[in-house]
């Protein structure tokens, strides 16, 4: 033991969590290469393909009747599905995070179901339940409210697929925050609704916003489930992803890639918005995290 030298070590001290430089650079290079190959290159390819005949030609394809109808339909579906999912997600997360009841684990599994079930299967389920051959669907069609091959079916399919985003984002935040804030508001005389509005909602607003943004991006891009329920009627029930596929199958590559570019652009705007909000409200986000 006494042989252990206490003089200066041969190498400079390094924190236990610091890697050797070559490992650090190798890992960074690997990550960048992977991102470039899997994310940036395909995205760039879409925009290059779209702009091969110039910006004007690309933009003109978006002005055609079918294209405009697809864009409009996608925006309509997102505008209906996303707020509804935000409301349902909030309700589900509230229920799971703030109350104890039997079957809670089952409910959480159920919320995750859309992640594990193939969207095509989900679409088929909606067709079987609400299609013209089913009891409910038949009755609705007779009364002039078709679900399948119409807007309601597309909205339902989109909602099913994107349901977990808001709830999943909110549940851990709400569990972490516990019930004390709400209880405090109630003892101060606030009604349940006031407590929700002035305490619960402000406490989760950032998580809710992230959930809504992700939900929106996914809602606009959904293909599988919508493809089954929409019937892909040109100019009527074709959403942007469906219209892109149709253009592509017809070798209208400029039209296909331009719309793909627009869809990718909408998703990028969503992410940009999220990042900007984070930068702009960094103080507030930090302030609303619980102090220990």
């Amino acid at each position: 033991m006494s042989d252990v030298s206490l003089s200066a070590p041969a190498r400079p001290f390094r924190a236990a969590t610091t890697e050797a430089p070559w490992i650090k650079w190798a890992l960074i290079a690997l990550s960048v290469a992977f991102l470039a190959l899997m994310v940036f290159a395909p995205l760039l390819a879409v925009f290059i393909e779209a702009l091969q005949d110039g910006l004007w030609v690309a933009l003109e394809t978006l002005g055609e009747r079918d294209a405009r109808s697809a864009i409009w339909l996608t925006l309509t579906v997102a505008a209906i599905a996303v707020p509804l999912n935000a409301a349902f997600g909030l309700a589900a997360a509230w229920c799971i995070a703030k109350y104890d009841f039997r079957g809670k684990a089952f409910l959480i599994t159920l919320i995750d179901l859309p992640f594990s079930v193939s969207p095509v299967v989900a679409g088929l389920c909606i067709v079987l339940t609400f299609g013209a051959n089913s009891a409910i669907g038949g009755w609705l069609v007779d009364n002039g409210y078709p679900i399948v091959f119409a807007l309601p079916g597309i909205v339902l399919a989109t909602m099913f697929v994107t349901f977990p985003f808001v709830a999943r984002e909110l549940i851990p935040v709400m569990i972490e925050q516990g019930r004390a804030d709400e209880e405090a508001a109630l003892t101060l005389g606030a009604t349940g609704w006031r407590t929700f509005r002035t305490v619960t909602l402000p406490n989760v607003k950032w998580a809710l916003l992230y959930g809504v943004l992700l939900c929106n991006a996914r809602a606009m891009g959904e293909f599988g489930a919508v493809a089954v329920v929409s019937g892909k009627i040109r100019g009527q029930t074709a959403t942007m992803p469906l219209q892109i596929e149709m253009f592509y199958q017809e070798y209208l590559s400029v039209a296909a890639f331009t719309m793909a570019g627009l869809l990718a652009f909408l998703a990028l705007v969503t992410l940009l918005l999220k990042t900007l909000l984070e930068l702009r409200f960094a103080d507030q986000i930090a302030a609303t995290h619980r102090q220990h």
Partner: peptide, 27 residues
């Protein structure tokens, strides 16, 4: 709970993080 009019101080105080001290007290 609202009609009891009991002033309750919670273990970790449960102050509303997104409100100023003034707004907390005025709640």
């Amino acid at each position: 709970v609202q009609d009891r009019r009991a002033g309750f101080v919670f273990q970790n105080y449960a102050l509303f993080r997104h409100m100023t001290v003034f707004e907390n007290v005025a709640y």
